[in-house]
Design a protein around this nucleic acid. Structure first.
Length: 289
DNA sequence: CGATTATCCTGTGCGC
DNA sequence: TGCGCACAGGATAATC
């Protein structure tokens, strides 16, 4: 399940391999892969040079020299794979980018992932600027489809959480995985963040004290940062691999996620699972309060 | 407005 | 051994 650390790993590799390279064309075969507009619109990228690869939360975007922005989301099972030209096409390959430096393939068994060309945000006076969105480091904030996202979870701050969580009765974990609150956290890292912060995942968000919010913000940054350093988590289902098909290395550092009834890595008490609504969380009943 | 639920989809792994 | 089914879960629309 690609979350922020996995998407950031893919972003760095995409930038390293393809930035400055020319795209001949994209061939989309997946019926659901481009669903916000006609797949034919991607022809606008034919012959374009990739200038940079950005990320906000779990969204990736590829920015081209003429200002076009192609947004990608891997959702549950999407993978970006750099392959040798002419390599056998594996099942569930939905799009192929033909770069000068080689083929980039979008593979996604469950077809939740998507690609789309960004629409520019309207200017302050309400009129949409002519042409594609302007280039620059703040590209994500200028993409209308990403305007609902909260701050990237890598820069989570306690003060922001205090304001945002105030009066909220929903469980902490539900707030952490809400992309409007913080962008980038999913099921795995929400549990790991709550563990490192020593807070129960089912605590009502608004009940957290300032000291606890400090720990949640700091743990968000440190858990995600450590996971990026180890190139993300690859679970037993193998749904995540990097651009070159390699696994991540952070799964061996998981303290609670997927460890039901196994001893807590800190205190040895069996890890439990708590359910709230349709969701659940792994947690240590001794370390987290 | 905030919280909850159903939906999309396929591969996996479990129980019988 | 084989079959059926629950389950996995990110984002979003619908509903309460």
């Amino acid at each position: 399940m690609p979350e922020l650390p996995e998407v950031e790993t893919v972003r760095r590799d995409l930038s390293r391999v393809y930035a400055g390279d020319k795209l001949a064309r994209i061939v989309v075969t997946g019926r659901r892969t481009v669903r916000r507009h006609s797949p034919d619109a991607l022809a606008a990228l034919d012959g374009q040079v990739l200038s940079s690869v950005g990320r906000l939360g779990k969204y990736l975007w590829l920015e081209w020299e003429d200002g076009h922005v192609l947004v990608a989301h891997l959702r549950m099972s999407g993978q970006m794979l750099a392959v040798e030209p002419g390599a056998p096409t594996e099942p569930h390959t939905h799009a192929v980018f033909y770069f000068s430096r080689g083929e980039l393939r979008f593979v996604d068994p469950r077809t939740f992932g998507e690609l789309f060309l960004a629409s520019p945000l309207p200017d302050r006076d309400g009129t949409a600027p002519a042409g594609p969105p302007a280039a620059g480091p703040s590209t994500g904030a200028r993409v209308a489809e990403l305007a609902h996202l909260g701050p990237d979870a890598l820069v989570a701050e306690a003060g922001y959480l205090k304001t945002t969580f105030a009066g909220r009765r929903g469980p902490l974990k539900s707030l952490l995985v809400d992309q409007r609150v913080l962008a980038g956290i999913g099921n795995i890292y929400a549990d790991e963040i709550c563990f490192e912060a020593k807070v129960r995942p089912d605590r009502p968000g608004g009940s957290l004290k300032s000291r606890e919010l400090q720990r949640v913000a700091a743990s968000t940054r440190s858990v995600l940062g450590a996971a990026i350093s180890l190139r993300g988590s690859t679970l037993a289902d193998q749904q995540y691999s990097d651009l070159f098909g390699a696994q991540g290395g952070y799964q061996s550092r998981h303290n609670v996620y997927g460890r039901l009834a196994l001893p807590c890595t800190s205190c040895g008490v069996p890890v439990q699972r708590v359910r709230f609504g349709a969701k659940s969380a792994f947690w240590c009943p001794r370390c987290q309060r």
